[in-house]
Design a protein around this nucleic acid. Structure first.
Length: 839
RNA sequence: GCCGCCGUGGUGGAAUGGUAUACACAGAGGACUUAAAAUCCUUGCUCGUUUAGAGCGUGCUGGUUCGACUCCAGCCGGCGGCACCA
């Protein structure tokens, strides 16, 4: 620590000559990290805690590189928030673990030959050390690692739960396959038809894969959102992802082709529509090219063309299919259906704009009232029939005609209105018409009301090595059997090549097959696929409560006491993946009687993204900012505080270190203030100090409550600016400042606390409270406006009456000048704030 | 295309409908110093020699209001999500 003789000047206030020290982060930070650890002040007794507060931050992937600015941004402010809650007297549980399964470790293994288990363990150790240097208050005794057998036995146990409750099934399906990662991907992991990880275009491949029935929970996942304290944007994204739509299923009978045999005439095609009220306007049907009834209904002479089209579509990638959405393509099947309402014979087409995965894979086309159908009908000159008159639009000659005649842009009227040309629906409003037609369909037994969801089942199989093996074995006939609990953890074999081939790497393992045969019998084979890493992270918040307990998945009492998580912090990129999966798993566990809560995360906060020169930081772009030199120079406290001061935590922003000096100066000034004022005896707090102090306590408390770190820090800076001007302040004031600062600059505050002659630790103190009586000043500054423009300010005593204030304002020379002797028409008076004369 | 969010000094950013630019950074000027660093003071723009003061200023155009960064309508620009979901 540097000691110098110098004169300190504080603004216009106290001058003090004496020996001073400078705040030196290096020695201080290490000192307190050690003391915190020795005293174990962040340990929480999960069973005895009286006022539990579960603060959780999305756990990191254990990377081999050092912590980057993004890590600091995610974990520094979060730690400050946890500390704030602790100071408020909560029994804060703030655990940290590692989401350790996944591709990077596997790729690293391929490059270096180091087994993933080894490199991961090393990385975890490195990262824990670095988090300690950051000054995080995590309780490392309760850490976890999803790739450890004692963890993944529960990942496997969860799979078996799903299996037992009929929520896991295996089926052959067209799945998203990333040719670079050589594995399948869940729908949520494809973005614009590309792999979410590597950006490679995904292929559609028919494969037999394990799915979890998240669709079974679609409605509950939707309903549950209403009561969650989550960002509205995130709830909206989940609602959209689940994609509920109300409509009807309608059956269309096939019209017999002259050459068709009798059986084919009985075929019916079901369509899903959200506008059953437009049934009278359905002029043709369109099936998805993959529709199973296609071969049954297509007459011989059309089969060539249909097959050619199907082939063409199959070759198109997902990207091409969606990118070329300008002109729609399709071919007629040659078959016809009967519109059950009009009894008219309407053609059946196939087109790739109809998706097999949604609804029934077939639509009734109403070109007059649907954009896509309209476009398609225009291209292929199919008939249109207008059946809805939009509300408020008088029937003009032009509008009365068919939309197709208007040519050019659009033409389909998708708005609701009044039914026309629709027999018994005529004159009904769209909602009424919907009800009426559904009732009619049900009477006729050719349709029913139906709710559809966009959400699809969760594909959990992965053809990769570094994941939890799926706990299933197959008998010699190929039937799947769950592995009994006593064989868990079903260990990941080590005698394998890591190279991905599209085949599961576990197929290589001799040990794996021998183990299976030894336990289950000759000819039995293990499941070679591993689980999606999102499975591992779908329940980790429960496992934190169990300290590597090998007997129970979760303790019911603890779960009841600590769940749901009180504050969950993480990036918005998980809105439709992790956050949806975790909710689904929690619901399934509740139904299985394992947990008592339905929702895992009561409150959610998204921190922003830190970029460099406008781009997301990544190794490949080479724009990753290394925080170490800055931490070395300014200390962890100053660096963390700077990141919080940069802007709103929810915004993130472009990183630059201009400005860290400001935070460093602030800390130095606080340090000096404490040193100098300790020398002043018998100091008293002025009224100004009292007001400012209490206002600051209020502001900092309210801001930290909602993670507005930037404004909390500026409030403390304002307070410092006031304190520096004083001839002296009391030790009590300095102590309150130190506690207010503690969550934001933890090591620094501990040192100040000690400097103030107090016993450690500042984190065992009570958060200060403010008293409204101290927030009221003796005098107010009243702004005086004339016609809304500020012309003067006047100082008035707190007790002054409205009349007094108005008179005082009116008599101000500047105001006089503007009033110019005229009587004001109106006088606005806002107590304690402003007066406005309207002339 | 649809849904949602956001546009404020040279920069990061503050502002329950009530003094726009708090708090910082940078630059400029000044004080201290033999000098430098550190520290402290001043600093939105235009006019006014300085002061007093006046005018202009929150993407653009209007509206509501005594008063609008804030509310409403329309546009322009940026970001995020979804994208043939019938």
């Amino acid at each position: 620590m540097c000691t110098c003789w110098q004169i300190i000047t504080f603004g216009t206030g106290l001058r003090y000559d004496g020996v001073v020290t400078f705040y030196d982060p290096k020695s201080i930070e290490q000192k307190w990290q050690k003391k915190w650890q020795e005293a174990g002040i962040y340990r929480v007794d999960l069973d005895k805690a009286k006022d539990p507060y579960y603060c959780l931050v999305m756990f990191p992937y254990p990377s081999g590189a050092r912590l980057h600015v993004g890590h600091w941004f995610q974990y520094g402010p979060t730690d400050s928030f946890a500390r704030f809650r602790k100071l408020q007297g909560k029994d804060v549980f703030f655990p940290m673990g590692f989401d350790a399964f996944g591709l990077p470790a596997e790729n690293y293994a391929m490059k270096t030959g180091t087994p993933p288990a080894e490199s991961t363990a090393q990385n975890v150790r490195n990262m824990m050390e670095q988090f300690a240097r950051m000054g995080c208050m995590c309780d490392w005794q309760k850490s976890l690692n999803t790739s450890a057998p004692e963890y993944y036995r529960w990942t496997q146990w969860l799979f078996l739960q799903m299996f037992r409750h009929d929520l896991a099934y295996k089926k052959q399906a067209l799945v998203n396959f990333c040719p670079k990662c050589q594995t399948v991907l869940a729908n949520e992991q494809c973005q614009d038809g590309a792999c979410e990880r590597c950006g490679t275009e995904v292929e559609q491949k028919p494969l037999k894969q394990w799915f979890w029935k998240i669709t079974h929970y679609a409605q509950r996942l939707l309903d549950g959102l209403d009561d969650l304290d989550w960002p509205e944007q995130t709830k909206l994204m989940q609602r959209h992802w689940i994609g509920r739509s109300e409509g009807a299923i309608i059956q269309f009978k096939i019209s017999c082709h002259p050459e068709s045999i009798e059986a084919q005439c009985d075929t019916t095609i079901e369509v899903f529509t959200t506008r059953p009220d437009t049934l009278f306007g359905a002029t043709y049907l369109v099936l998805a090219p993959e529709h199973p009834l296609l071969d049954d209904i297509t007459p011989k002479e059309y089969q060539g063309a249909v097959h050619a089209y199907k082939e063409e579509v199959r070759k198109k990638s997902e990207m091409e299919r969606t990118e070329l959405n300008k002109t729609k393509t399709g071919v007629p099947t040659g078959a016809y259906a009967i519109n059950p309402a009009t009894k008219e014979k309407i053609p059946i087409w196939i087109a790739d704009y109809v998706i097999m995965n949604y609804g029934t894979g077939a639509v009734m086309a109403v070109p007059a009232h649907d954009e896509r159908d309209f476009e398609f009908a225009k291209t292929y000159e199919l008939p249109m029939q207008k059946v809805v008159q939009p509300v408020g639009a008088p029937l003009s000659a032009e509008q009365a005609g068919l939309p197709v005649r208007q040519g050019g842009n659009g033409g389909a009227c998708t708005e609701e209105g009044t039914a026309i040309n629709s027999d018994f629906l005529n004159g009904l409003s769209t909602p009424e018409a919907k009800k009426r037609i559904v009732a009619w369909l049900e009477d006729e037994e050719i349709g029913r009301q139906q709710i559809n969801y966009r959400l699809r089942d969760w594909l959990v199989s992965r053809q990769r090595y570094w994941g939890a093996p799926i706990p299933v074995v197959y008998d010699p006939e190929g039937n799947p059997h769950p592995i009994p609990d006593e064989h868990l953890p079903w260990l990941l074999p080590t005698d394998v090549e890591f190279k991905p081939t599209g085949e599961s790497p576990l197929t290589d393992s001799k040990e794996f097959i021998e183990r299976t045969e030894k336990i289950f019998g000759e000819g039995w084979r293990p499941e070679f696929d591993t689980m999606d890493t999102f499975v591992c992270s779908s329940f980790y918040y429960l496992r934190f409560l169990m300290e590597n307990d090998g007997k129970n998945f979760v303790d019911k009492k603890r779960e009841k006491k600590w769940m749901p998580v009180d504050m969950y912090i993480g990036g918005p990129e998980h809105s439709c993946m992790h956050l949806l999966y975790a909710r689904f798993v929690m619901m399934a566990l509740k139904d299985a009687g394992v947990v008592s809560h339905e929702e895992p995360f009561q409150k959610l906060f998204h921190q922003g993204l830190i970029t460099k020169d406008g781009a997301k930081m990544s190794k490949s772009k080479g724009n990753v900012v290394d925080p170490d030199p800055l931490v070395e120079t300014y200390g962890s406290d100053a660096f963390r505080m700077y990141m919080m001061f940069m802007g709103p935590y929810s915004d993130g922003g472009d990183f630059s270190d201009t400005g860290i000096k400001g935070v460093e100066r602030f800390l130095q000034r606080v340090w000096k203030l404490v040193e100098a004022h300790q020398q002043v005896r018998g100091a008293k707090d002025s009224k100004e100090v009292q007001i400012k102090l209490h206002a600051t306590v209020k502001k900092v408390t309210e801001d930290l409550e909602v993670l507005h770190f930037n404004t909390a820090i500026s409030a403390l800076m304002e307070l410092l600016n006031v304190l520096e001007k004083q001839e002296g302040v009391t030790a009590d004031t300095l102590k309150i400042c130190t506690i207010l600062l503690a969550p934001l600059a933890p090591h620094f505050a501990e040192e100040l606390w000690e400097k103030l002659g107090e016993e450690p630790f500042v984190f065992q103190q009570k958060w200060p409270t403010f008293h409204p009586k101290f927030l009221v000043a003796d005098q107010f500054t009243i702004v005086v406006q004339v016609n809304g423009r500020v012309r003067a300010t006047v100082e008035v005593d707190a007790g002054a009456s409205k009349e007094d204030i108005l008179t005082q304002a009116k008599n101000h020379p500047h105001v006089q000048k503007w009033l110019n002797g005229t009587q004001s028409k109106k006088e606005i008076y806002v107590p304690e704030k402003l007066v406005n004369f309207v002339v």
